[in-house]
Design a protein around this nucleic acid. Sequence first.
DNA 1: TTGTAGGCGTTATCAT
DNA 2: ATGATAACGCCTACAA
Lengths: 333, 333
Amino acid sequence: MNIKKVAEHANVSTATVSRLINKTSYISPETAKKVWSAIEELGYYPNINARGLASGRSLLLGLIVSDLVNPFFPELVKHFEECAVEHGYEVITANTNYDPARTAMRVRSLIERRVDGVAVMTSEMNQTLVDELSTRGIPIVFFETGEVRENSSNIRIDYEQGIREGIIHLFNLGHRRIGFITGPLSLKSSQMRKSAFLKFIREQGIIEKKELVTTGNYMIDGGRKAMSQLLELKERPTAVMTSNDMMAMGALQALRTYGLHVPEDMSLIGFDDISLAESNDPPLTTVILSRVKVAESAFESLFALINNASKIGKEMWIETKLIIRESTARLIV
Amino acid sequence: MNIKKVAEHANVSTATVSRLINKTSYISPETAKKVWSAIEELGYYPNINARGLASGRSLLLGLIVSDLVNPFFPELVKHFEECAVEHGYEVITANTNYDPARTAMRVRSLIERRVDGVAVMTSEMNQTLVDELSTRGIPIVFFETGEVRENSSNIRIDYEQGIREGIIHLFNLGHRRIGFITGPLSLKSSQMRKSAFLKFIREQGIIEKKELVTTGNYMIDGGRKAMSQLLELKERPTAVMTSNDMMAMGALQALRTYGLHVPEDMSLIGFDDISLAESNDPPLTTVILSRVKVAESAFESLFALINNASKIGKEMWIETKLIIRESTARLIV
DNA sequence: TTGTAGGCGTTATCAT
DNA sequence: ATGATAACGCCTACAA
């Protein structure tokens, strides 16, 4: 079944059918009707790949993520797909498993598919790969790790805002010994959260104590270990912020092991606001980093790069903000 | 950049280039070398969509899931993609959000992309949609909800095995009042788990008590509510099995609220073995339903349907089995 | 072993 | 308002 058969069936040319489907020029009501019913009768579905060949746009987008199983990503993928579909695009998700070789392979596939743009939501992209895309004029949007230039946009997270709110919240509750659990310090995002923490601790006039900042791995077990470490301190913190919710959940486990209750014995603030945060016990006070907004920004910037005359990318900031639930409480002295 | 330019650059015909790339016939070492270096120099990446047009196979697979954010799916998607990529396929994931209209739309898109096969890991597929695919000879593999026939395979889960093991495990630990939290009974998968539970309870000579079977929603809050209900019973169960791990996590919350400890005061068994089960506190005894195997079976059956002479599908059974961690213990009398 | 050329299903440019 | 037809990039008989 193809456009030609439809055309024959309706006694028109393929051009007419094409024009009708794509609303690319006026078609008289009578012929339109003829053609539509031919399409209906024959169960004709246009071949998008062929269309892409002819038109030069595949209506395909690549989405590169490092680990779909990390709760941060599914929501991102979901919303990115939603935006894409809404605008007639289809998305091919590439999971890199943090593996540069695999990443290279997947990027190559995306190029071979002639994707119209790619969202790089991972940091395993070396410059060579980026160049492969750039050379071919394929628009890219990065998450944190990119730069703004031709065919390249970048999404930035305003970590400071949410972390500042968190610290002020704790401060107002009377906490002065505040611990922090970072992510792997090899990641830029970990570093940024950590510096934000230190910055606002100082802003509140709290003296920074090295031992109160400990390192995790963005996973539950890392949070558990890091919190255990903090609990072994001679002077325990009375509140702890973590770099992501998964580690906060792990921290909670460590606290339970020590027979401590949240928020009575210790206040705890997460980061990300993954869906588990709300249904956690206790519901986690955390910093919202909206994946919906990240996904929307990513799509929209690609869409702009693809369709606008201006090929110059832009920088987009995503706000973060504190959401107070039940894992934080006034310090009892 | 296209095959023609490569051909010119290497002083050969496009046919030779094509044959070399696709290893579709012997090429003399000298020409091969010439062509490869031309490809290298020009940075040529074949256009897979054009290839699909010519060859009739898009090397594209559709994967339909109902909710990416449900922890069951990301792993499935991840492994399905892995299998696919390994065999030269690319996958388009379609998230239906449990919405039939959206499902219809996405299926249509997949057809327009001329996917070579589609894995339907959701139950929002009405017969019309299935027919649209069948009519076009597109192979399908279903998860639980399909039938075996031409171009259609089906994956079945052997719920009984794991649930039986769970019950025997509890029985051997001395438990006789065993509760069960089902999923929404509108879902076939919920019903099957429930009947398996009842069947093996009886097998152990335990008399079925209606009030010990309660209904949840496959989500954390549903597990919490269902467990609360069980805890309000005059005669509480001493052990509870849930239809999935998320509800087990919710159940755990309810137990904490009631000041009860797992496994000391109550044994708890989940289902699925999502990654959170292991890092749960306490690590959850649960029934493994391997998403890796589901993904592999789904891909392999599609691959077979696509490439084998026989177009007749098959039924594949996925085993389930108990994994004992720390949420179950001997009943203390 | 390699080349020629028609065809895959559309779109888009000229015509009419 | 519609039709003819040349691309689009590749594959694959058929020839040589």
